[in-house]
Amino acid sequence: MTLPLPIRDPGESADQAFNVPLEPDIFDSVHGIATAQIRALTPARIFQRRSGTSLATSELLSFQLDLGRARDAVQAALQPASFLPELNRALSGRASAVLLHSAARDRREYLQRPDLGRVLDAASAGVLQQRARSIAPAVDRSSLAIVIADGLSALGVERNACPLVAALLPLLPADAWQLQPVCVVEQGRVAVGDEIGQLLRADMLLMLIGERPGLSSPDSLGAYITWKPLLGRNDAERNCISNIRAGGLVPELAAMRIAALMQEATRLQLTGVALKESSLPLEAGQ
């Protein structure tokens, strides 16, 4: 779509009011090829069309659309009725999904009280304790707790969590990994995985959580892995793989990186700053 050029007094070579000699015609339709070339160099909003010193309407609305999508993603709620069956299909019998809720009652409380998003509410803790009693201890293999939380983008979870789990499971042989019930947490933050991992007596925690939406990425998923999850673990004791989404790190490649990290973490018996992904023999995902 091409907008008409801003109308300008041809005698006006510089805008004296702010002392910048603007030339609206540098990147106009005559030089459209040049504009397209340079805009292709970065996802940043450069060489935007303008009127005077302000953005042209098309540029303004494009920004507002992306902002609206990002803000919708923050407010969106996970839909367990559709998500849980899809997750169970992705798990293909290796584990079953459990729905839990953090102590943050709603989005508003979640956004203002990060401490509440880091712990389960009483009912969920009770449910999980009951499940934990019926789990046999892992012998000769590592126990893995996968936790999926809405975080700041339920959209990121709905679009990417199941494809990621489906791609990851074949990389985790049953003779090496015992899967615990996969916990889906509403209004959850990263650290809620620690409480869950501890209750399930897991050796390894894989936390999948919706990331803070950017204007160009409302649906991004983050993966945090933590060896021996315990209440009170800090972020320096985890490893993170970020930007998992169709337009970023695709779930299939993310699964390979996560599997490689978890394998190395199990060998070293640690996660965090001492575990460097760059030292891993990765076949993909760089």
């Binding site: 970065t42 996802p43 940043a44 909003r45 450069i46 935007q48 953005l55 540029e59 920004f63 992306d66 902002l67 803070r212 939406p213 950017g214 204007l215 160009s216 990425s217």
Partner: peptide, 13 residues
Amino acid sequence: GVPGADDVMLNYQ
């Protein structure tokens, strides 16, 4: 001065 007020690295406006 961030291009279009949208920081595509730090993900904020």
